[in-house]
Amino acid sequence: MSSPLFYIFAAITLLFGAMVIASKNPVTSALSLAVSFVGLAALFVSLDAYFIGTIQVLVYAGAVMVLFLFIIMLLDIKAAEKLKPNYAAVAAAVLLFVVLIMQVAAVLTGFEAGRKSTTDAQLRPQQALVAMGDKALPTIANDLKAGQLPDTKLMGLQLYHKYGFHLQMVGLLLLVGTVGVVVLSKKENSPKGGRE
């Protein structure tokens, strides 16, 4: 992707990300987060990761953010204007942030993979496809020329062929989560006479 678009979307992502923290109105924060997610989705698309980009919009910007807004409005959370910042905590947080950013930057500058452009980087799922011996399947570049979205296909293949066991485990995990939500949000019964 041409770099002006990258900088525009990166700026949108960062700007609205900062707005999430800076804004005192929770509704503004939530909506800024949604916009920030859209910017992030555009960045994913620019990396040829169409599937993650789509999911980012559908799941995060769509479902999760609506849920956030729903809860904010349901609980009627007031703007946090009266909160006094705890300067010591803010200073410590800024320090930690700077240290982490410096660390990431130092590591990334020494990391060859970080300097490769996406055009010459071999995508691993593609290698996996080749390893499966199914050479008749089109490569990513061909599919892109044909206007298809191959990464969804590849992801599905990986998920259901290679990681079937983990998919089942995640199914159990979600079931446990559902049971947990029911348990923890059940209405309280005041203990009646006979019980105990």
Binding site: Y163, F165, H166, M169, V170, L172, L173, V176, G177, V179, G180, V183, L184
Partner: peptide, 30 residues
């Protein structure tokens, strides 16, 4: 499953299965 895990994906998913169930168990007597 964690005891048998040979890779980080299995570790992560089974670890989360255990942890999510523990979130519920810890708060059970709410």
């Amino acid at each position: 499953w964690m005891a048998s895990a040979k890779d980080l994906v299995t570790v992560f998913v089974s670890l989360e299965l255990v942890t999510v169930a523990f979130y519920v168990l810890v708060a059970y007597t709410r």
